[in-house]
Design a protein around this nucleic acid. Structure first.
Lengths: 136, 136
DNA sequence: TTGCTAATCTGCATGAATTGTTAACTAGCA
DNA sequence: TGCTAGTTAACAATTCATGCAGATTAGCAA
């Protein structure tokens, strides 16, 4: 994800306005490795800006996602999570505490895959399920 | 997934009762390659047994899943899908029509993975996103 | 076959996550 | 400084899934 300053430029360039709510969310997501849910971010944002709406958090996150500045990740645990890391990477989720971390996978071009006939594949997501060091 | 007859045995052996509703669902899921949602199965079941409850469909599917007779798959499109194929396999989903098909992946032991330190991995799911032949 | 009892079914209520709606508000340009 | 399109907040609505309670039934035992 771009820096808050760069995002300000990018939003204006796209005809979108840069409000205090959005700037706060830019800062909260920049460099964030927590893979937060919308609710979690809303909670964080609320401490710094009481009265901010959950709807606004969702709105801004989906705007960022559609600009390619964030990735949505679904670990099958109810709520979607947001990841400012847009590198080509995957995830591991702890089934006990729900913690999610980034995983880098190399060598996938050597996989032998059967069943993709007729499909044009756009993207691949690999999700590892297990238990983290703390929960083991 | 086992055959309806075998499932009848298995349910009784576990102290679970075999009702007409359950038998119908056994038949509807056996060999089913559609990866249906609970709603879709409910719809199918309703034509053969009007009055069956959606609650019962969820209940039976959950029971089957906890017995290891089916797998739950989440393609990030809202509802969870159910797969009677419990082999070690993965899935591809068409982003246009939502169709899901089984994919077999070999060679994953040769992947080079970075970021799993401290995690004990129980399972891995690979999901391919793209467009199917009909929607391309 | 009959009766008992725990398991099940249905219908409805509830809950969690997300999106739709609308009137009031404001960023950013002229 | 004013205008106007884009935003926000509050609330309603939707979707998917689970909790609950009273009526019903499968399956065992006599």
């Amino acid at each position: 994800m771009k820096s808050p300053t760069e995002l300000t430029e990018a939003f204006r360039a796209n005809g979108l306005k840069v409000t205090p709510q959005r700037q706060l969310l830019f800062r909260l997501m920049h460099g964030n490795t927590m893979h937060p849910t919308a609710e979690a971010l809303f909670s964080d944002a609320s401490t710094q800006m009481p009265g901010i709406s959950l709807r606004t958090v969702y709105q801004t996150l989906t705007d960022l996602a559609s600009m390619g500045e964030l990735r949505l990740i679904d670990v099958g645990a109810g709520a979607v999570r947001f990841d400012p890391n847009v590198d080509d990477h995957h995830h591991v989720v702890c089934e006990m505490c729900g913690d999610v971390r980034d995983v880098y996978v190399a060598g996938s071009q050597n996989l032998s895959i059967d069943g993709l006939d007729g499909f044009a594949v756009d993207s691949t997501s690999i999700l590892f399920h297990g238990s983290c060091a703390k929960c083991a």
